[in-house]
Design a protein around this nucleic acid. Structure first.
Lengths: 356, 356
DNA sequence: ATGAATAACGTTAGCGTTAACGTTATTTTG
DNA sequence: CAAAATAACGTTAACGCTAACGTTATTCAT
């Protein structure tokens, strides 16, 4: 009820309840060894005084802090989505989340923060898609660690999306629409996800007999600007692709700008498909066809796994792979087909005469 | 050098150095009372054993944890920008940052996290633009708190951008371009920033004698979808506005989609100006004219202030207001003027015919 | 030379909590 | 009914660190 100035301590409560600190501790932690009446009274007093256990002391005393650390680069939308997801998945548990935001220039977190986290939290969820050496320095810790999207060799449970399958879906979709000359804007190949998506692209090229000039693959590094530049390159080709698959939504957005900047239109002149399904994908115009990463499920899986590990239960599988899903919106269209724009009234955009 | 399994403790180091724990502590904390030779040796040993001070213990022992807590809603781009800015501003200091991400449904952080933070960190930077009651519960703490963008009554130092002036600049810009019928997509009026921007709009309407039909103001709630809907409303007006000022970039982006969806073009048919200058503002097409929030400076100011407060120095002013700045890009254009699209090469910036 | 100041340490205690034993009544069991 | 088991507590120590005193030698002023 009353929000006290300084948060009260266990011993204060114990004093008022006229019991030892230990009894108070037991009562509050729901442990045996306290009669029901005393427990009730202690709980009442604690409530009354607005007692909150000091996690710092709890942790130092060898206990748990009930805090889960998240290491992430907040810069990319997709990562933010995941962090948010973890937060809401955690909200139904008794854990809190504290995020360490890695600078975009750092490829690995400073040693300091790693040990800080190690000291304070009960478990760490790492969302760095790097092959990160520093993880090795964590591996010998007793601290549970779960990794999301981490591609490399390691000994932690790993939550990943099925990037390969997702990319295949995207290409299949474009092929189904009649596109045979598809450009690919690749991602940061340091990341396993980028490599998987590119591998899928090349496999599908072969499998479906698509055009496979090497110039059809341009790196966009998962960045807006990278996507812009890459698309510019693709548009400069002697024979222009009729569709572009970008390895993530951000570079797809960049590509869209580049296409417009070149006087062409999506999807009339060029179909465009992204990957991730970040929030803006549905919000840009035209809404982006993309492959949806199951970020909410991934977050939930990560949370479940780490909570289990904290409880001492080792995860059944080292890798949990979640399926991806194609989301068809307005940026992809059958080749050569002239459809009216999905406008409310009658707005005429240039109808495309597709160039061979 | 050697990365030890379990991080070593002070007493281990002291034992090896054959000194007391206290001497080791003094040496490592750069405090007097240790001879230079011993200090050097202790430092060497500590380095050698990969010693890292246990912040949890430091903090519990009444010391500082050298950690700054940040409470923010990571959902909005602008907030993320600020958090990132705080992170990089902190990187040059000896503090680390831990972020608590508030759920978008919560308007206030759970009591638990507040006390958790209070227990562990040396200071808190709050980036909630709410009039948040919970801040009051913090106010009696001994913990330094700095607020960014918080509009309400409170007793903490506050870092804000000059929203009023910024919005005036935006309107003035549109007026200079000849627009006299300007629609306004307002923000979430719970936020002081939104109120300031709307006030500026109305003041300028009066001051410049612009059209001031009440229908020219539609709420967009700072959201993409809200901006979309609001713009739809504005376009439905019997006499359409020739320019739209959105209270933030996100709703401007929504408005842009709506305008396109209505078969019109930015900036040919409608000039559009946003607010914030989040990263995507320059990345959407056409690049958005907007008012730049000095988020990097704000972050730096917040960090400097909190660090000073932790050191016991009360800030000189309760409110630090940083100037905003108009960034003219491609989404605004003189009324009625027909300019070629600013494609690849020669994008000429509009020459302004200033109207009284 | 002698008391006082100083430098360089060491000791004790405590931050708030819990684990691991003690202790004391009360109940159960053979 | 005595011995053993149990329940309901209390005590002690420890987590890793630092603040606040002590202690000892060395230097300094008079």
């Amino acid at each position: 009820m009353s929000t006290n100035k300084r948060s009260s301590t266990l011993s204060e409560i114990a004093k008022i309840a006229e019991v030892s600190v230990m009894t108070a501790s037991r009562a509050l932690n729901n442990q045996p060894g306290v009669s029901e009446e005393k427990r009730a009274e202690i709980l009442r007093i604690a409530e009354d005084m607005g007692y909150v256990a000091n996690r710092v002391a709890q942790r130092l005393s060898g206990g748990k802090s009930r805090v889960i650390g998240v290491i992430a680069q907040l810069h990319t939308l997709y990562t933010s989505d995941l962090v948010l997801g973890i937060g809401s998945a955690l909200r139904s548990s008794k854990y809190e989340m504290l995020v360490y935001s890695l600078s975009d220039t750092d490829s690995q977190p400073p040693q300091a923060i790693v040990s800080l986290l190690r000291q304070f939290v009960d478990g760490i969820i790492v969302i760095l898609p790097f092959q990160s050496d520093y993880l090795i320095s964590l591996s010998d810790a007793d601290l549970p660690i779960v990794t999301i999207d981490e591609g490399s060799h390691d000994n932690f449970p790993k939550i990943v999306a099925d990037n390969y399958q997702g990319a295949r879906l995207a290409i299949q979709h474009l092929a189904d629409l009649g596109h045979r000359r598809i450009g690919f804007i690749s991602g940061n190949n340091q990341l396993a996800s980028a490599r998987d998506r590119e591998r899928a692209f090349r496999d599908m090229q072969a499998q479906l007999g698509l055009d496979d000039d090497p110039e059809l693959v341009v790196n966009g590094n998962f960045l807006q600007q990278g996507g812009f530049n890459a698309a510019k390159e693709l548009l400069k080709l002697p024979v222009r692709p009729t569709a572009i698959f970008a390895a993530n939504d951000i570079s797809a957005a960049g590509a869209m700008s580049a296409i417009r900047d070149g006087g062409l239109t999506v999807p009339e002149d060029i179909s465009l498909v992204g990957f991730d399904d970040v929030a803006v994908a549905s919000q840009i115009y035209p809404a982006l066809t993309t492959v949806k990463q199951p970020s909410a499920q991934m977050a939930r899986a990560a949370v479940n796994t780490i909570v289990a590990m904290i409880a001492g239960i080792e995860p059944a599988t080292a890798v949990i792979m979640l399926p991806t899903e194609l989301v068809v919106r307005d940026s992809s269209r059958p080749m050569g087909e002239v459809v009216e724009m999905p406008f409310s009234k009658g707005s005429r955009k240039k109808s495309t005469t597709t160039v061979a």
